[in-house]
Design a binder for these strands. Structure first.
Length: 270
DNA sequence: CCCGGAACCTGAAGGC
DNA sequence: TGCCTTCAGGTTCCGG
């Protein structure tokens, strides 16, 4: 599922293929993929505009246009982009297409149909509710400590709360807690200063390493030129049902925390 | 405020 | 082998 490292990879690889190019036309094959505004307004404000730059905020991908508008995309569970000059639909799950003036077609492929496009004049309107970027300089151990202070909710639940920290989803939360050796059900406010320090380091290390591996190709994720990522090969616990802990050799356990499948090592994570 | 649960979806996996 | 059920999870919304 696309989380921060996958969206960051898509942004990095999509950018050289689309920036500086003009939009010839857009199509929505599944109308609900466009959240707002109306199709007519989206078309009239996007057609003929040049894509000037790409950005990422949390799990949102932002395509900035020369008009000042931005196309904001959320990939949700199964969204991916594929760029190709071949005009035949690359996949039966193609939900939207942006045709560019150099003949490239930007295909949005999303089997589950949860992904959303929005056009906004001020992208902060959509992404401003998000918590800090975990890889930014400002995300210090102190900031993390402050976010967890006094909270009773399980640490796993807080890590995936986008209003607290932007971009961490189910699988990287599990990996970060494993690296920090913290049990997913620990009340957030009960973490010691030492544990918060370990968790802070683990979050950044897990996300950076996944970006270096171009994301995790769990489920349907692939990159704009069709390749997969390899971050999932480094997963120690996430999605490793029936696997064993690489440190103690014990079984990886699966529990449900706030309706999310949660994998951890009951011996190493306390 | 805090939490659980449903809805949105479809492909894959599990059960019998 | 095949049908039927369940599961997977990011986000939003609704109700207790």
């Amino acid at each position: 599922m696309p989380e921060l490292p996958e969206v960051e990879t898509i942004k990095n690889e999509l950018a050289p293929l689309v920036t500086g190019h003009r939009v010839k036309s857009v199509e929505f094959l599944w109308p609900k993929t466009l959240l707002s505004p109306t199709l007519a307004e989206f078309e009239s404000r996007v057609k003929g505009r040049v894509i000037t730059s790409l950005d990422r905020r949390g799990k949102y991908l932002i395509l900035r246009l020369d008009s000042g508008d931005s196309i904001i995309v959320h990939l949700r569970m199964t969204g991916s982009f594929l760029v190709s000059k071949d005009s035949t639909l690359p996949d039966s799950h193609t939900r939207a297409v942006i045709h560019l003036d150099d003949g490239a077609n930007v295909y949005f492929i999303d089997p589950r149909k949860f992904g959303k496009f929005q056009l906004v004049s001020d992208d902060d309107w959509t992404t401003g509710k998000l918590g800090p970027e975990p890889l930014s300089e400002g995300f210090t151990t102190k900031v993390l400590a402050h976010l967890l202070e006094g909270k009773k909710a399980p640490i796993k639940a807080l890590l995936i709360d986008q209003q607290l920290i932007a971009g961490i989803g189910n699988m990287y939360a599990d990996e970060a807690l494993y690296e920090a050796r913290i049990h997913p059900l620990r009340p957030s406010g009960s973490l010691s200063a030492e544990e918060i320090k370990r968790l802070h380091r683990a979050i950044r290390q897990v996300l950076r390493s996944a970006i270096a591996s171009k994301g995790a190709s769990i489920s349907n994720y692939f990159r704009p030129e069709g390749e997969k990522g390899s971050a999932h090969q480094g997963f120690k616990v996430a999605h490793r049902r029936g696997g064993e802990c690489p440190v103690c050799g014990g079984p990886v356990e699966r529990i449900v925390v706030r309706q999310r499948g949660t994998y951890f090592c009951p011996a190493c994570q306390i």
